[in-house]
């Protein structure tokens, strides 16, 4: 790990003053479950590390008329156990609970989960975010069993956050603060598929801190279904988060967002369209799953993930349908 200056601000204002307009100068430290390994592997070599864990205003979950506000420092464990979140955003609660190992759930924060870097093994072994060699990505002909099945490049890693798809499906907003002031972005536009090696996979600017998330009030059914191979310390192979507004037994409107299948959470308008206006049955859920993967373009080794994504959508819909709402 490269030597760095360590800063311990107590307020957001103080913290953003310590950041820089350029990536690589300063890094925000929350739970450290990702940043520390990135630094040990010299993938991040910040000159300054800004610890935000002493900033009280970043803590806590509150339910107000404006919705549920979740502070960036809320841990996965707090998120998973919060009764309000469980009651009105089950998909998010379940996604947090499924993040493996009590250690990570107790240290890892919501802000850190959304801002964590991809787990792509080319990126983690130092081949760069897009794994480019001689102008061509190594991934399509390389070891790509865990890589993207949507998006057709140039980024083939999969977005790591399993909270991301649930937040997008719930229509959440994310608050980002810099020295110039706050701004709000829709969760759907927070994640981006980077077009080149120097851009990021999230809309956060280097001089900003993610301070909170807002889930709008709504009466919805929501569910997350994840395909994970192991029970312990493992990443999902494919996930789906769905949010449904019901009119009686039929779906008035739907959001279907797939995870771990593309460089950003994959918002499937096709699946949403397929289920809208229908009652959820095994057949309609299956049809929505099929619609979700109709445009998938798997790589040499990961055609199996197309099946997993299809099944995840189907099962998430069936699970959401079971909820009382």
């Amino acid at each position: 790990m490269q030597s760095f200056e360590y800063a311990n601000p107590a307020t957001v204002q103080e913290a953003v003053g310590l950041l820089s307009a350029k990536w690589g100068e300063a890094d925000v430290l929350a739970g450290g479950t990702d940043l520390i390994s990135l630094m040990k592997d010299h993938l991040h070599t910040p000159k300054r590390v800004v610890n935000i864990k002493n900033i009280k205003e970043l803590e806590g979950i509150q339910k107000t008329a404006a919705g549920i506000r979740i502070g960036a420092l809320v841990t996965m464990d707090e998120l998973a156990k919060n009764a309000d979140v469980k009651a009105s955003a089950k998909s998010l609660s379940d996604a947090a609970a499924a993040i493996p190992s009590p250690q990570i759930r107790h240290m890892g924060t919501v802000g850190g989960d959304l801002c964590q870097r991809p787990r792509c093994w080319y990126y983690r072994q130092g081949f760069g975010l897009l794994a480019m060699k001689d102008g061509k990505s190594l991934v399509p002909d390389g070891a790509n069993q865990y890589h993207a099945i949507f998006g057709s490049g140039p980024a083939y890693f999969v977005s790591a956050s399993s909270l991301g798809p649930a937040l997008i499906a719930l229509g959440a907003k994310i608050k980002l603060v810099s020295a110039k002031g706050p701004r709000e972005v829709a969760a759907a536009s927070f994640f981006v598929s980077p077009a080149n090696e120097t851009s990021r996979e999230i809309a956060l600017h280097p001089d900003e801190i993610l301070t909170e998330i807002l889930i709008p009030p709504a009466t919805v059914k929501s569910a997350t279904y994840e395909v994970r191979q192991k029970e312990a310390l493992d990443w999902p192979l494919a996930t789906a988060s769905v949010t449904l507004t019901m009119r009686g037994n039929t779906v008035a409107s739907a959001k279907v967002v797939l995870g771990h299948v593309a460089a950003k959470p994959w918002d499937s308008a096709e699946a949403a369209k397929a289920i809208t206006g229908k009652a959820i049955t095994a057949d309609t859920a299956e049809a929505a799953g099929k619609a979700a993967v109709a445009s998938a373009s798997p790589l040499s080794q990961n055609a199996y993930k197309v099946t997993l994504a299809r099944v995840a959508v189907k099962r998430a819909l069936l699970e959401a349908a079971k909820q009382k709402a």
Partner: peptide, 21 residues
């Protein structure tokens, strides 16, 4: 990895070991 000639999972993250459950 055919592309780089490297072992892609020289770790205990993607070299997966069973857990108790």
């Amino acid at each position: 990895d055919n592309a780089t000639g490297r072992m892609m999972n020289p770790d205990l993250e993607f070299y997966k070991l069973a857990g108790i459950k």
